[in-house]
Computed example of a mutant assay.
Amino acid sequence: MNSELAASNRAIAARTGLNDSDLAVLDVLHRDGPQTPTSLARRTRMGTTTMASVLRRLTRDGWVERRLSQTDLRSFTIHATSADRLAKIFLPANQKLTALVEGWSESQVDQLIEFLEDATKVIHESAEQLSTKDRSDS
């Protein structure tokens, strides 16, 4: 499944002019809402220099915008502005995935969602531990 998701992301990237890093940032913004560049870098496990390049490209191409913080005018947050462009591309696959569970009971769907959320948490925690170990090994 991981290989197929990666291949799908590469196909979407080729179609949109985005790359894996761009898609990762847009995914975090879509799921978690506006973020500072530092929190985006931490969340996507990118260096700050790489994040700056990604954000310049995404801003230039109209995928995100920078908005000044209301509380700290030295700070800004990044907001996704073109989620609808990606939603149209993902729509056919999303419809097919929805069709896979249409005949399922509500409890079956709830179990699937719970499993996917728990699996995502395990993977996130594993990445956190690996990142922390990498920093302590340096």
Rank of each mutant, 00 (worst) to 15 (best):
G17C: 02
R42F: 05
K96G: 04
T48D: 07
I78F: 05
I123R: 14
A14H: 05
T16L: 06
F115E: 05
N19M: 02
L112A: 10
G103D: 14
T48C: 07
S8F: 09
K88I: 00
S82W: 02
F90D: 03
E102F: 08
L29E: 07
L116V: 07
D32T: 09
T16K: 12
T71Y: 03
T48H: 09
A6Y: 03
H30Y: 06
V28T: 11
L100M: 15
V54H: 03
L116Y: 06
F115W: 08
A6I: 09
T16F: 02
A7T: 13
R85T: 00
A24K: 12
A87D: 09
A7C: 13
R45I: 14
N94T: 09
E117G: 03
P37H: 03
P37D: 01
V109Y: 04
D118Q: 14
T77S: 10
N94D: 07
A14F: 00
D84F: 00
M51T: 08
A6L: 13
M46A: 08
R43L: 07
D32C: 07
T44H: 07
E102L: 15
E65S: 04
E125A: 11
R15C: 01
L58H: 01
Q95M: 10
N19L: 01
L130H: 13
T132P: 11
L58E: 00
E125W: 08
A83Y: 04
V28K: 15
R43Y: 03
T38H: 13
T38G: 12
E125N: 11
A99D: 10
S131W: 14
D84M: 09
D110H: 14
P92E: 01
R31F: 02
L26R: 07
I113H: 07
I89W: 00
R66W: 01
S39T: 11
D118K: 15
S69D: 08
R43H: 06
I78Y: 06
S21W: 08
L73Q: 07
M46R: 15
L97I: 14
T36G: 10
E114C: 06
E106S: 13
Q129G: 14
D27Y: 05
A24C: 09
S53K: 13
I123D: 10
